[in-house]
Design a protein around this nucleic acid. Structure first.
Lengths: 221, 221
DNA sequence: CCGGCTAATACTGTATACAGAATACCGCAC
DNA sequence: GTGCGGTATTCTGTATACAGTATTAGCCGG
């Protein structure tokens, strides 16, 4: 029978805050006060603090002792560093995966088509992009690696979101996909992995150039 | 003038608990009760819980909702998975580093000699081993990568510690070093990085074989 | 009109209190 | 003696309370 899933409040708070950050609702640099969030979400400070601490470790927030939490500013360096790590890890995951089934390739193509048709909605695009990567790597047996990739992707997601809000461009997303898929079909995982790393480097360069121009993506009062 | 460093209590608790786990003081599978720890350390439950949550995310503990925290059991699979990630990341860090100065190579050799002379003390050996890796990679400009490596190394450290307690052997530690150093001097970073990955794979295989025999390293009442 | 000092406020970090769930203990039936 | 049911206790997750520090606002002197 279906066991009812009990989930800690801090998990929900975590998701909520992360979403607000990624949507630009909480702009970079903004101070995040646990008491405010607690009031808004209708819970106490304790689970809020737990969520904020976790977000700090994940790189979405920063916290100096006694000075509380604030949204980590967008920083070209951070993007480059995370991108380098992520490129290596996703390539590794691909190399560890079994050869792809036609069915999976099919799904990837389908996702790309969805992406083509969703030019407008930034959040939806990012979801599809995440899903694409998830499907590409889901056969990788190294579970811990996949978890790590997921949490690192949230960092880059912030940059992509800010970029898309500002520039309205998606070129980064779909183009690399076809090339990787091509390598995938032609020469197998290994060359796809290489393509992966190269595409990461290129995408990061483009994003980085943009961040350098507009260091605080999406501001509010 | 020297600013006094204020550090949260949870940081100290984190270190304390991690040490107890690595020293085998808290054996794998043991339940960790925040109220006990709080009493022992003379602080309240709040910072203790913060530390335990962080340890859970770092992989030293596990926690199911409502059932509290317990020391994560040693699992060959986890070691293999973490080892694969760590091999790739340390290799990446090496590739991103500038060519090593003779002075650094000197220091690495010195550390290896210290290791030779410290056959007895397991904890000291692990510290030296950590230090060796730190020195090897310290020139890597990707700070985030280094942080990630550090936190992942704590996972493997648990396995090494249990292994050394049980088997009293250190062969894993020093042998790979000379080979990597050799590659370092002969052919530069890139080939050293490759040697790195290979050595990781070998060391992990040895450890894994051992863990499979004695799945709970070091038990107490 | 502006800069520095002081006081009031707000906020963080930590401690304690409370409610509900999980575990352990005990007695009982078989 | 063993397996089950019920109760009592322990423990977790969350809420609230408290103390000390950072921040802001106001006031005074220049």
């Amino acid at each position: 029978m279906g066991t009812i899933a009990r989930t800690p409040l801090s998990d929900e708070v975590y998701r909520q805050v992360l979403q607000r950050i990624q949507r630009g609702d909480l702009p970079a640099g903004r101070r995040v006060k646990d008491v405010d969030l607690a009031a808004q979400l209708g819970v106490s400070r304790t689970p809020v603090r737990e969520a904020l601490l976790r977000l700090s470790r994940d790189g979405a927030l920063e916290n100096s002792v006694g000075r509380g939490f604030r949204v980590r500013p967008l920083d070209p360096g951070e993007l480059r560093e995370t991108g380098a790590i992520l490129g290596a890890l996703e390539a590794l995951a691909l190399r560890l995966s079994p050869e792809p089934t036609p069915e999976r390739v099919e799904r990837l193509v389908a996702l790309d088509q969805s992406l083509e048709h969703t030019r407008g909605d930034a959040a939806r695009c990012l979801d599809l992009e995440d899903e694409w990567h998830r499907v590409l790597l889901e056969a990788c047996p190294n579970r811990r690696l996949l978890d790590l990739i997921t949490s690192l992707r949230q960092v880059t997601r912030r940059y992509l979101a800010a970029y898309m809000r500002d520039a309205g461009r998606l070129s980064l997303s779909t183009l690399p996909h076809v090339r990787i898929l091509q390598a995938f079909r032609d020469a197998g995982r290994d060359s796809a992995a290489t393509a992966f790393e190269q595409q990461w480097r290129r995408g990061v360069a483009e994003l980085e150039a943009w961040v350098r121009k507009a260091p605080d993506g999406g501001s509010a009062s």
